[in-house]
Simulated assay, not measured.
Amino acid sequence: MGNCQAVDAAALVIQHPTGKIERMYCPILASEIMKLNPGHYVSLIIPLPVAAAATTAAADEKTVRFTRVKLLRPNDTLVLGRAYRLVTTQDVMKVLRAKKYAKMKKKQQQQEAAEMSEEKLQADAEEHSSSSQVLKPGNSDSEKAVKNEIRQRRGGGLTITAAAGSRSKSWRPSLDSITESGS
C-alpha cells in the first residue's frame, strides 16, 4: 500500500488521438515518441485558468477546461509531471491552413481599409482643390483684384505723382480709414 499519487506526479502522460492514455516514468525525447507513433506530432498541453464567474455559474454542469496546445520540436525533452498529446499530421496541417487563411483575410481587410481611406483622401483633396481654385494663380479676375490689393498694402500707401515727376519710394505709414493723396 504505497502512495499512488506520488507515482502519478513522477510520470509523464501521453494522450493518443484514440483516447488511449500512456504513462512513462522517465524523461524521453519527442523524436522517440514520434518514431513510435508515425504520422503524429507531440504537443504540450497547457491548461488555461478558468474564470471564477464561469466556475461558479457552471458548478452543477459539466465544466469544460480550455487548453492551449504547443507543438514540440523533435529534440525537445518530455518532462515528468506534464501531460502531452499526440496530434495527427492532418490536424496540424488543418490548423496551419486555417491560420494562413485567417492571416491572408486579415491582410486583405487591411488593404481594403487602406484603399478606402486613400479614396476618401483623394475625394477630400479633389473637393478642396475645386473649392480653392479661386486662389490658384491666373484663374480669374477676382484673384487679380486680390493681388492688386496686396500690392497696394505692401506699398504702404505710397502714391506717385506724375505731375511732380518724382518717383519717391520712401515709406510712409498708411491708414485704411484715411485716404492719402498726392504730396
Rank of each mutant, 00 (worst) to 15 (best):
T88V: 02
Q152T: 08
G182I: 01
M1C: 06
T63S: 11
E115D: 12
E118K: 14
S140I: 03
P173Y: 04
Y41T: 01
R73N: 10
Q133D: 13
T89G: 06
R172S: 08
V69N: 04
L12I: 01
V134R: 11
V13I: 06
S142H: 13
K147Q: 15
S129M: 12
R68W: 07
Y41W: 05
V42F: 03
N37Y: 15
G157K: 00
S43W: 01
C26Y: 09
K70E: 10
N75P: 08
P74T: 03
A163W: 06
A58M: 05
D176F: 08
G138V: 02
V79P: 02
I33N: 00
V7R: 09
M34Q: 13
I46T: 04
T55Q: 15
K106T: 01
V134C: 12
N37F: 10
T56K: 12
T89L: 15
W171M: 04
G155H: 06
L121I: 09
D8L: 10
E180W: 05
A54H: 14
T88D: 15
A10T: 03
V95E: 08
L72S: 01
E61L: 07
T88K: 01
E127R: 11
E112Q: 11
Q152G: 08
Q122K: 15
K147P: 02
K62V: 13
G81Y: 01
F66W: 11
M104C: 00
R151S: 10
S117Q: 14
G156M: 01
K169Q: 06
T63W: 05
D176G: 09
A163T: 08
P137Q: 05
I160F: 02
S132W: 11
S177Q: 15
V50K: 08
V64C: 09
G182L: 08
K35N: 07
R68S: 09
K105F: 03
A83L: 05
A53M: 11
A114L: 15
M1F: 04
S132V: 14
R85Y: 03
S174F: 06
A98D: 04
Q111V: 08
K120P: 01
T56E: 15
T89F: 04
R153I: 04
A83C: 09
N3A: 09
V134A: 14
G156S: 13
C4Y: 07
A123R: 11
Q122L: 15
R23S: 02
Q110P: 05
A9P: 03
D60C: 07
N139Q: 12
E149F: 07
R153Y: 04
N139C: 13
Q15G: 04
V69I: 12
V79M: 13
A102K: 11
M104A: 07
G182W: 08
D60A: 11
A114R: 15
A164Q: 12
T89H: 13
E180A: 08
G19Q: 00
